[in-house]
Structure formats: structure tokens, C-alpha cells
Design a protein around this nucleic acid. Structure first.
Lengths: 193, 193
DNA sequence: ACCTGAACACCGTTCAAGT
DNA sequence: ACCTGAACACCGTTCAAGT
């Protein structure tokens, strides 16, 4: 890649990160190009689809989550490992409003630029779930797709301004269903502080 | 209202129901008008916003859900009543893809044509939850907004083609968290059939 | 190689003009 | 009263023309 092109690309990514943080993943591509002082066609040249742009933005985060998952797979408590990874996943989806919907769509669309990362993410969760089922207190009637769906629904809650304040609490509620036998942190808390 | 206007309105509602059933709540208003063989301005004249159109489409369903909730409030089992109402709510949101997001937004927006109905809906759920907490096995650390949020997240699952097949199963999982002490139907089932 | 203006087919909003 | 074509300001896609 030519030097000016690389610089353009990096500038576009930085601006896109700002705009999408403000307006969510459905932000206008034209608006992103405008704020980056390039033509719309130039943005599309670097990132031919919205998914491609998202993929580039999420790349770092995805890699970090994957590394965390790998670490957690050998951590002492399988239950804690599962809960921690779930929390990380949901937290990372909070950076860009609407990104969870893109990820769920990408899972079913092999052509999506996000497909591979999302499938890998689900696989990591599936491994942590399997270990928590075998050696910990995770219920056995759910699989990796169920876990991904629950994580997705929790991330969706965080996207809704009127529900976001409840997201942390409801995370605990859902976790209590996934780990009914675990002595996890919130197990004994039946009333709010 | 003039007779021709009423006929137009009814025709528009019927067509809009079809189109939104097919394409979800973000279907093009122009497309709805086109399929109804009227000008776009005529559709907007009857329903000045997308929410107003949705409100008219959901009116019947909302009233039915409210009536059901009223019945359930005096039914013998508070736990069953809560679960049944939750199930009805989630099922009704399944008719129009994306409608749950509109409802959640409407709860926070007093100007929305859907606001009143959604607030009433949440209130009905809150009453059923309170009874299940007082006389049944519902956990006491959640309130009506939490319940609405959980119901919303389950409805959202149903909107995602890749996750919808899990919606019924995950409904049971979430219910098991809301009613940890209840002898509900799925309590003993720890593996899938 | 890389960039971009312009044409295109869409969208929802608004309103003056028609019946 | 009720309807609607047309103008408007948007959107993402595409590509011929420029540097």
C-alpha cells in the first residue's frame, strides 16, 4: 500500500471510530467520509462495505477477547472463567451501539467480513461453556449457540438507553440461570443493596 | 371521517400489515404506499409517523394482551400467570420483526404514538410480577422494568433468524432465573429431549 | 496506484395545487 | 375534506475521469 493510502486508511479508521461511538453502527458512511475530509468513494474504496469497516474497527478487540478466552480455558475455576468471558464479551459490544446485531447477522452470513471473527468468538465461548458443564456448575441443556444468544440479548439490553441501567443486574440474573449450581458471587443476593 | 377516507385508511392498514410482516418494522413507507396504490403523501396523511402506523397495527393485539393480563391477575397460580403473560407478550412481538426495539424506544419517548400502550403493558407485567413475588416463587430482586427488559431481550432473540430457533428454549432458561423457587413445567428438565 | 465528482436509484418530509 | 405530484435533502452504489 502506498504511504498516502495507508495514512488515509488510518485516518478514516480513527474518524469512523469516533462517529460510530457517537451514532452507532448505522451511522451514515457519507458522514464518516465528510468528517474525514475525503470523498465518499474513497471511504468505500478502503472499506467496500459497512461490515468491512466494522471488522477493521473491531479487529483489535476481537483479538484481545480471543487471547483472554485462551487464557481462561486453563484458569482454575471453570465457572468463573465462563462468567468473566461473558462479561468481557458483553462489555466489548457496548462500545458501538448496534454492533451486536451486526455480529449476530454475520454469524449466519458467510460472506460478511465479520463472519470469521464472530464464529471464532462463539467457539471460544462454547469451549468455556463445555468445561463449566463438565467440571463446574453450568447447566447442561444449553450449547454454544444458546450461550451466544444469551450474551447477544444481554448486549442488546445495553444498546437500549431505557434498559441499559439494568444490564449489569440482568447479567447476574441470566448468569444465575446458566450456572444454577455454582457458588458465584451473586448467588446469595436476593435483594438489591 | 369521509367514507372514501375510511376505506383508504383500512386498505392502508391491511397492506401495511402485509408489508411489515414480510419486511419488518423498517419497511419503506413509500413501498407500503405503492403497494396500496396511493401516493406516499396519502399514507403519511393517515399515519404521520411510522410509530403512528405501528400503533394502529398493534392496537388490537395490545388490547388483547391487556385483557389477558387482567384475567391472569386473578388466576389461581401467580407463577403460571406470570409465565403465561410473558409468553404471550414475546409471542405477540414475533409478528413484526423489529417491533420490540420500537416498543423499548417508545417507553422512553413520551411523544411516541406507542408510548401509552407500552407503558400500560409494562404496568400489567409489573402487577403480575409483584403477585408472583408475594405469593409465588418469583425472585424478589427484579422489578417491572427488569421484567420488561428480559421480555424484550427474548423478543429480540426471536427477531434474529440465526437465534430464533433457540428462542423457546432460552425462554425457559430465563424463566428459570425469574422463578427459581417455582415448580414450573421445565424445572426438572436438565437435558434436551 | 490512488482518489473523486457526478449520475443513479433509493429514502422520508413538506407543501402548493388539484378534485 | 381529502388526495397527490413535485421539490427537497438525505442515503449507499457505481464508474468514468483525473492526478
Amino acid at each position: 500500500m502506498r504511504a498516502d493510502a495507508r495514512k488515509n486508511r488510518e485516518h478514516l479508521l480513527a474518524v469512523a471510530g469516533d462517529v460510530i461511538t457517537e451514532q452507532g453502527v448505522d451511522a451514515s458512511m457519507r458522514d464518516i467520509a465528510r468528517r474525514a475530509d475525503v470523498g465518499l468513494a474513497t471511504l468505500l474504496r478502503h472499506f467496500p462495505t459497512r461490515e468491512a469497516l466494522l471488522e477493521a474497527l473491531l479487529r483489535t478487540n476481537f483479538d484481545q477477547l480471543a487471547a483472554t478466552a485462551a487464557d481462561l480455558e486453563t484458569s482454575p475455576s471453570p465457572d468463573d472463567a465462563l462468567v468473566r468471558w461473558l462479561r468481557d464479551f458483553v462489555a466489548s459490544a457496548r462500545d458501538y451501539r448496534g454492533v451486536i446485531a451486526s455480529m449476530v447477522t454475520a454469524i449466519a452470513d458467510e460472506e460478511s467480513a465479520l463472519h470469521e471473527s464472530c464464529v471464532a468468538m462463539r467457539a471460544a465461548g462454547t469451549r468455556l461453556l463445555a468445561r463449566a458443564q463438565a467440571e463446574g456448575g453450568a447447566r447442561k441443556d444449553i450449547d454454544g449457540t444458546d450461550l451466544f444468544a444469551l450474551a447477544g440479548s444481554l448486549a442488546w439490553l445495553g444498546d437500549q438507553p431505557s434498559l441499559a441501567p439494568r444490564a449489569d443486574h440482568l447479567f447476574d440474573v441470566v448468569v444465575s440461570a446458566v450456572l444454577p449450581l455454582a457458588g458465584h458471587a451473586t448467588a446469595g443476593r436476593k435483594d438489591r443493596p
